[in-house]
Write a protein that binds this DNA or RNA. Structure first.
Lengths: 209, 209
DNA sequence: ATTGATATGTGAAAAAAGTCAAAACCGCAT
DNA sequence: ATGCGGTTTTGACTTTTTTCACATATCAAT
């Protein structure tokens, strides 16, 4: 997952949830927070938060804690979130359309720029703020607009083919909703979202009725 | 996450993806597989697969590998997947409705039994194979039917309230799509799905244009 | 039967991740 | 100024997880 970077991927993976909680606290009117309080809200330990942050330098003030505003700013910079990223969605089925309408992307700096599908009945229709384009134009749009991020919501059977095309066209990060294990080059960031896999993981702990 | 169990949670969390790949291979006509080949398809190492499986006993045959059919059966049993589980969805917005129509649950042993919402305009309408019920009937239905699993797709502002009600009513596993950090008792399995958090995690690795 | 190629299961070593606590530091009250 | 309570830093320590490598087992071919 991580390449030559010295910061472990597992640390990076926790930062977004810190950021989410910090934003929540900022909205509630907090100005400063200790690692202990933040840990309680995030659901981790104070030591872990301090250790994670220490990879990037010391952001806190001893005896006081962390300035929430300052810490948010720093985390956004670390995560390359101090800008708006454009993403495209491939597959305008139920899920693709629901994601295209989801406000949470725009609210957190991800603009859904385009939506592609292969079905002529769907191409041309308006979903949220974008018009569905034909998937044949996908590669050229990616290159023209220099898109780096794509969300895959196509049927499992064609997900790998789409992934290959996306990678070939220059996409660097893929959020895959299709229930298959995609194979992509190591240089491409792949995140899988499969609710069934996540549920299965919990079944192990459920008492058998 | 794991309590007194001797099998680490991180091991459990990998089993569903093994199972997914094994099912894929079975469909492709394979009958047997080595840890090496499976590892390549899953995207891990042979040693890790063998070590993981060894927590539950020896399923393979030396010199030959694993019988795919047998291994699928064993993993399903380990994960309590050798039965159909019922789940409910709370929140019939875009996402909740898309999930209610998603065939992937039924195909993999999760039956979406009921769908709840608070909006009188939506209550009573048919989504997929279920009719939307009023959220006020949620607790009684959970208890009457002994539901253990719930998917939360309500707005962030009310997610914690819903979670509290679900836990109180006896729900043991929650799949949370709301972009907030929920607080639940340790005895309740919580899995969060937030596409934005997963994307943010990849941004760190993207080159700045 | 014997050999060679292949593959598992597992204990031990290595690496990674997480925890702890002493030292340093800040701001405030006295 | 000084002392004190609270909190970060930092690095040593502990625990967990992953990797390694080898003894053992199977199968097919000779």
């Amino acid at each position: 997952m991580n390449d030559t970077s010295s910061v472990p991927d597992i640390v990076i993976s926790r930062l977004p949830s810190y950021l989410q909680t910090l934003n929540q606290m900022a909205k509630e009117g907090w100005h400063t927070v200790s690692s202990k309080v933040l840990a309680e809200r995030v659901g981790t330990t104070a030591a872990q938060i301090r250790k994670d942050l220490s990879f990037f330098g010391g952001f806190g003030k001893q005896g006081t804690g962390y300035s929430i505003y300052h810490l948010i700013e720093q985390l956004q910079k670390i995560l390359n979130m101090d800008r708006v990223w454009s993403a495209i969605i491939v597959g305008a089925g139920d899920l693709g359309r629901a994601l295209a309408r989801y406000q949470g992307f725009a609210q957190r700096g991800i603009e859904i720029a385009m939506l592609f599908d292969i079905d002529p009945k769907i191409v041309g229709t308006q979903i949220g703020s974008v018009v569905v384009r034909h998937v044949d134009t996908m590669e050229s749009e990616i290159q023209k607009n220099n898109f780096k991020i794509s969300i895959i919501t196509v049927p499992a059977a064609v997900a790998q083919i789409i992934a290959n095309r996306l990678v070939e066209a220059g996409i660097q990060a893929i959020l895959n909703y299709a229930p298959v294990t995609l194979i992509v080059p190591g240089s491409v960031q792949l995140q899988n979202i499969d609710p069934v896999l996540q549920l299965q993981r919990t079944l192990y702990y459920l008492s058998d009725d």
